[in-house]
Amino acid sequence: MNDGLTPDVENKNTPKVPLKPLGKVLAVTSGKGGVGKTFVSANLAAALASRGHRVLVLDADLGLANLDVVLNLHPKVTLHDVFTGKAKLEDAILPAPGGFSVLLAGSGMVEYSRLTTEVRDEFLRIISSLVPRFDVVLMDTGAGISDVVLFAVSLASEVLMVATPEPTSLTDAYATIKVLVGQQQRQTVRLIVNQSTRSGSGQAITNQLQQVLDRFVATDPEHPIQLIHLGDIPVDPEVRQAIMRRQLMMQHTPDCPAGKAIAQLARTLERTVIPKPA
């Protein structure tokens, strides 16, 4: 009964952040769907892996992320099997092209999208046991503010918000940040502007969003909100072509404009949130 999200019950269910800052767990999320979360998750993972980090990508969109398609994997064991007790977590962690690991949800996971206490506990247990084994865990979440997304984000130490420069995407990103601030007391969000058509526009967009957040959301000076511009990724035909070829862009054409941008994102993350690998 208590797993939904009416305004007065959601505080009981969605743990206040930090629930337990779980190592370096980065949630890749967005307000609107289809803006490039899965593309960013997979390729950023490859970029970080090539810099020596042990990286795991988790399909926190419960099988809807299509990570298996992007990575051209045909998993025999998935998170679903771990949930149903058919397999051990170790067996569901697969090597992905690009030198990182991936935990795919499997199609049956949608069944678990009604987040009962048991499902939450199981998720928490799984993510907690992943954290010590990897330097970075990237969670590819669904779009919007479904309770699965909010729950996944609540477990992350950092939020990477992906948005495109279109007004609908920015409005939804802004609205989602509002919820993360209001409901999870999140104070820092990092913005990735994907599919940008003009260089340098990401910083301007970030400033704009920051101004509106300051004015309408962070009205309490004790609790400022910091929107940090993590970087821009240009529109690049290679992105689509890589998907059509079922190859990972970072692995095959790392020098294309989008590839260079992702490599830059990895360096920026290393400077700011992830310690350099030993």
């Binding site: 009964m1 797993d3 939904g4 999200l5 009416t6 019950v9 999208s113 009604r114 987040l115 779009a143 919007g144 503010i145 479904s146 309770d147 699965v148």
Partner: peptide, 15 residues
């Protein structure tokens, strides 16, 4: 129904 949110029918009816 809460948009984009997977909730339960019981909660919806309750509201």
């Amino acid at each position: 129904a809460p948009e984009w949110v997977r909730s339960t029918t019981d909660l919806w009816i309750e509201r």
